[in-house]
Structure formats: C-alpha cells, structure tokens
Design a protein around this nucleic acid. Structure first.
Length: 623
RNA sequence: GGGUCCAUAGUUCAAGGGAUAGAACGAAAGUUUCCUAAACUUUAAAUACAGGUUCGAGUCCUGUUGGGCCUACCA
C-alpha cells in the first residue's frame, strides 16, 4: 500500500470540509454577542415594520478596522422590508437596538452599514472571563478519531509527511480545545511489494549492514536500499530491452522484480526467514520514525498496522458478496459497481484472492467503529486520494453501515517544489530530518548574529534555538489553508521575520520580559482599573481582538483549519507590537492605565501561548 | 477523452456575497538617551480573459485560456 502522502497536486472539495461539523453551533446562539444582536435585529425589524426576517437575510459581522464600531449590520438586504433608504433604515434599527440592548453604547450608519459600538465594560468583562486553556466555544462535544501520518516502512519521511503530520496533530489539538474527545491514530503501511523491495536489496547487497554499524538512522538506511532496488531494477530493464524485449515485457520480467514478488509470496506464507528479516528491518524504520515524530512533536494514541488489519477487509468483501452488493467476475476477482452513483466499477479483491488498497481500508474502518463510539472519523490524507475516499464511503454505505456518513476525508494539498513534483526515486524529495536540522541550524546562526542568547547556558541556548527553528517550520506550513497546494523553495530558506513563527514567538518573549519586570517592580498581579478608563483606539481594538479567540477556535475546528488560528495569532501579534511600540507599559505613570496595559499584555501572551500550543509550536520565555 | 480542483502585487500567502482587496518577503526611505530593533513607520506594486446573476462579485453561474490531481488485478 502506498503511503497516504501526496506527491502530486491539487484538489479541493468545497462542500466536504466542515459539512458535518456545522450543526453544532445552532444551539449556542445566545452565547455570542453577534447572535444576540442578530436576534435583536429581527425583533427590531418586526417591531418597526411588522415583518419577520427570514433566515439568512440579516447578517451581523465584525466592523472593519477602519470604521468606528465593533459589530456591523448590513442594512441592504432589509431595504425590501423597510421600503426605505439605507440611511433611514439603519437609523431606525440602530435607535431601536440602542434602547433594547444594554451592551450597545452607540451606533453610526455609513452607507448601508449600521455599526454598533459595544460598551467598554462588556469587552473588559469578556476578556477577564476568557479561559485561554478551555475557552467556551459553545460547540457540543463529540467523539472524533483522526488518522494521520500513515507512512510506508520502506523510506524515511519527507516534506509531504511533515505537512500531513503537522496538520493531523494540530487539527486534533484544535478539536480537543473545542471540547471534543479525539483519538489520534496512525495507520502504518508495513506490508506489500514495496516493503519487499528494500528487504530484497538489503539481503542481496547489504552485506549485513545495520543502523548501528553504519551510524545511519534506521529509516534512512532502509530507504537507501529501496532506492538501490530501483536503480538495479532499471538497469535490468535496460539490459533486457537491449536484448530485444519490449519495455513492458522487460518491466514485468526483470529478475529483481520477480525475486521481490517471490519474497512477497513467502511473506504471505509466513516464511520464518522472511518474517525475521521483515521484523528486523521494520524495527529499524520504526526507530527512525520515532525520532522524527519526537522532533516534530507529534504523537498518537493508537497505531494500526496494515499487516494486522488487511485480513479484516477480506471478510467484509465476503459479506458483501453474500449480500449481493459486490459481484465476482469469471476470473474470480471481486468488484463493486458504482456506475449508478456516477463512478466506475471498482476492484476489491484480485483474481488470486489477494487484497488491494481499498480492501484493507474497508476492514480498518469497520474495526475502528466497533472499537470506539465514534461520531466522526477523519482521514488526513492528500487530495490525490480523493476518489479513493469517495469510493470508500460509498461502498460502506452500500454495505449498510449507517456510520459511513461519519467518514470524513480531510483532503489537503500537496507541497510543491519550484521544480514541480517531489519524486523519491529521482532524489527530489525534501527529507524531513534534513529539513528540521536545517531549520535549527539557521535559527542558531540568526541567534548568534543577533547576540540575543549570549548570556544563556549552552543547554538553554540549544533549547531556545530549537524551539525557534521548529516554530519557523511549523508555522510556515500551518499558516497556509490546508486545502490548497503550497510551494516550498529549498533554495530560499524559510523566513524568520514577518508573518512567521519566530515573529509570534518573539512577541511572546517580549511580553514575558515585561511581565517579569513588572513582577520585580511589584506591579504583579496587576491591580484595579476602572471599566470607564479612557482607552485609545489601538487598545480598544486589541481588547476586541483578544475576545475573538474562542470564536476563531470554533471556526478553526469547524473548518478543520489550523490556518485560521495561525493567521489570527499573527494578526493579534502584529496589533500587539504596534501597541507595544506606541504606548508605555511599565513606564506609564497612571497606575490604572498601567494595570490595564499589563492586563492586556498578560492576556495577549496567554492567548499566543495557548494558540501556538494548538499548532504544536512552543513559545520561549526569552529569545 | 471523462471527472474534479486551482488561477489575487515581482514572489509566498490572506480576504465566512458586503465598505477603499489585506499581509509578509524582495525593492526604496526612515525610527534606538525609553519596557527585547527577530520590532515599528512610510512609498511603489495585484483579482488570467469574456459574458451573466445581484442593491453589491476576488468570492456565485457560463464560456475561453493556462495548470494540478484522479481516471491501475500499484499502494
């Protein structure tokens, strides 16, 4: 089975993502001020014009930064009801709401936009009550399983896997922060002809080399033999073609391939020698993977191995045959006919009775739903396998499993290189370990050049440098909409300035530094400030932005998009930096104002830390 | 060929049918007696093309052009 990592390009199913997840927000309407306001708008319209507003006509959104106000009602759609012009309608509704909603302080109408300003005490209270660890997102808790990573055991992880792992891990964390239960699982593709290829090459040409004897990481060592197999295989084909064989014939009859196929049969027959080799080499790979996973900071609650689950699928196929959902062709192969659903016929079992990719996925899905009470099973798998998952869900529902509708393919785009596709065999892959090492090295260079960590111990320095390097890499990948393809140029190293992980980390470190100083000065915990304190526009906006965290988290979960969270954190950070630059905190002489600014700063650092944590990114205390 | 997705500054990314399309990098110019200059400020620069729907379109529909992916008794 191929690893579930895209090597190739793009695909994007708009109506898939978030489809199942949306219904949860309906019953929390009253929790959010936006929804409260929307409800009042409906009442206002009914009271003023005697018409009830149908669903989706009225919309309340955040007021754009350049206008005065916090929430905005778009008046245009209501003009048919008010039978009046936008300005007048806005005034009338605004007036009504002002009188009926205590949180609304004032309003203004610009063109067709009715902007409400909420009271400062509303925002202050909201921020005070905001729980950064477990914010109230108002979603109904459910049970999720998230499958991600899903590597082959014949070669090391590459950049495509990095995106997969970071997305899978982060999405799991975001769902957890929304209050859901999440089981993180990995499906290891540890059997099949591709595994035999590296085994065979090692057996024939390896001369007993081990990770210990070579000093190589196990997954890389095994990967080298996979590449070696391919090189020799190609030579053999060339040779055969020169001897007059057609290319297609040669591909099928190259001695090395025949040997690999023979090895696969011996594996399926549980030949002790082959099983021993298989176990040994897989153990090397797992050892290597564990190191890479640890470096990336991802983990799993449960690991499935295809070698243990592929047989379940055969039973499912058998059942489907008996119930007449599947059919057998003369040659003995088993198929399902999906032409009524607009798809093709799909093979489920080969004529020799061995299973294919789909077979094991059927079995694994059944196993999972019988093991866990799942409300949703999310497969984090590249968009190149979209058709596969469409078929999977369809076949399962044809088999009568009503949980088939809980299967959700989180289809993400590939990582492209400037040269185009990554191809393992052509050596154009970006290796995960190299990439991580490289990022940490760059981070170390930059720290040294800036001289920021000169007074740290070597251990501390190393830890911080590592945190920053990984932060740059992870943020670089996660800030992009998962559904879209993204480009990675190995020539131009990932930035450490601008919209980057280190930028956010730096802001956190700076705030922590201020807080430490405030503690030393006896300002912490910050004391009283009055709700009527006169705030600048910048401070007010920052306050509002901080309060948005729970709803960003909710959207991020509903859309399965860490990018929404990442971009919010960047915006927050940018705003804070402007505030930090323009206003004194510790040097502010008015103690109430100083307290407020410490409060803002402390909350900002808390949200940055919590949000980055959900992206799997650490934030340092200093850098 | 069929199915499907994509196209936004020089480049990499944003923008739940809503206001003047935001950032970052790169380019040009500035800010340090002051809480970390990995920061902040300023300037130039974009919705592939043609229609349509709408009070309103980068966003929805149709077509054109250019690209990706799928379309295996591979996984």
């Amino acid at each position: 089975m191929l690893s579930r990592i895209p090597l190739n390009h793009c695909y994007y199913r708009k109506n898939r993502v978030g489809l199942h997840l949306c219904q949860t927000m309906v019953n929390v309407v009253s929790m959010y001020i936006e929804n409260q306001l929307l409800k009042l708008v409906k009442e206002a319209v009914f009271s003023l014009y005697g018409v009830s507003v149908s669903e989706g006509i009225a919309q309340v959104q955040e007021t754009r930064k350049e206008f005065e106000g916090d929430l905005t009602l778009v008046v245009f759609p209501l003009l048919k009801i008010s039978k009046s012009n936008p300005e007048k309608t806005g005034q009338e509704i605004g007036q009504w709401i002002l009188q009926h909603c205590p949180e609304v302080d004032s309003f203004n109408v610009i063109k067709g936009f009715l902007n409400f300003s909420l009271s400062q005490s509303y925002w202050l209270t909201a921020l005070q009550n905001l729980d950064t660890q477990y914010p109230d997102t108002g979603v109904t808790p459910r049970n999720f399983m998230v499958e991600y990573s899903s590597p082959n055991t014949n070669k090391p992880l590459h950049l495509g896997h990095v995106r997969n792992n970071l997305l899978g891990y982060s999405v799991s964390r975001i769902l957890q922060a929304n209050g859901h239960k999440v089981v993180k699982v990995n499906l290891v593709n540890d059997r099949g002809i591709h595994i035999c290829k590296s085994m065979l090459a090692w057996q024939k040409f390896g001369k007993g080399v081990t990770p210990e004897s070579s000093g190589k990481k196990g997954d890389h060592l095994v990967g080298d033999f996979y590449v070696m197999f391919d090189q020799i295989y190609k030579k053999e084909i060339k040779q055969l073609v020169q001897e007059g064989m057609s290319e297609q014939e040669a591909e099928k009859n190259a001695p090395l391939l025949l040997e690999a196929q023979s090895m696969l049969r011996r594996w399926e027959a549980k030949d002790p020698e082959i099983m021993g080799l298989w176990k040994t080499m897989n153990a090397w790979v797992y050892d290597g993977f564990d190191k890479t996973y640890a470096a990336m900071g991802v983990d799993f609650d449960k690991v499935y191995y295809e070698s243990q689950t592929y047989l379940h699928g055969k039973e499912i196929v058998q059942k489907g045959l008996e119930s007449g959902v599947f059919f057998r062709k003369e040659d003995g192969s088993v198929w399902v006919d999906l032409t009524d659903e607009g798809l093709d016929q799909k093979l489920l079992l080969r004529s020799d009775g061995t299973s294919v990719y789909m077979t094991q996925d059927l079995g694994t899905a059944c196993q999972r739903f019988s093991e866990y009470p799942l409300d949703e099973l999310i497969y984090v798998v590249g968009n190149e396998q979209n058709y596969h998952f469409q078929v999977l869900a369809l076949v399962l529902s044809k088999l009568g499993y009503d949980w088939a509708r809980f299967i959700h393919h989180m289809s993400y785009g590939m990582v492209e290189l400037p040269s185009g596709k990554m191809k393992s065999r052509e050596g154009t892959v970006v290796d995960a370990d190299d990439l991580i090492e490289g990022m940490i090295a760059t981070s170390a260079e930059m720290s040294a050049a800036l001289g920021k960590l000169d007074d740290c111990s070597p251990e501390e320095k190393e830890r911080i440098v590592r945190t920053i390097g990984l932060g740059a890499l992870k943020y670089f990948i996660l800030k992009v909409d998962p559904r879209k393809n993204m480009l990675f140029d190995p020539q131009e190293s990932i930035d450490f300035n601008g919209n980057t992980g280190p930028f956010i980390q730096y802001t956190h470190a700076r705030i922590r530094s201020v807080i430490r100083k405030a503690e030393a000065l006896g300002f912490m915990p910050f004391g009283h400030f009055s709700a009527g304190l006169s705030l600048s526009a910048k401070e007010r906006y920052l306050l509002r932005l901080l309060c948005r965290y729970p709803s960003v988290l909710r959207e991020s979960g509903e859309n399965l998009s860490p990018a929404l969270l990442a971009n919010y954190l960047y915006e927050l950070t940018k705003e804070y930096n402007q505030f930090y630059h323009d206003y004194p905190i510790l040097h502010e002489e008015n103690p109430e104002l100083r307290n407020f600014r410490l409060f803002l700063s402390e909350r900002t650092s808390g949200i940055i830390r919590a949000g980055m944590d959900l992206l799997g990114i650490d934030v340092p205390e200093k850098m």
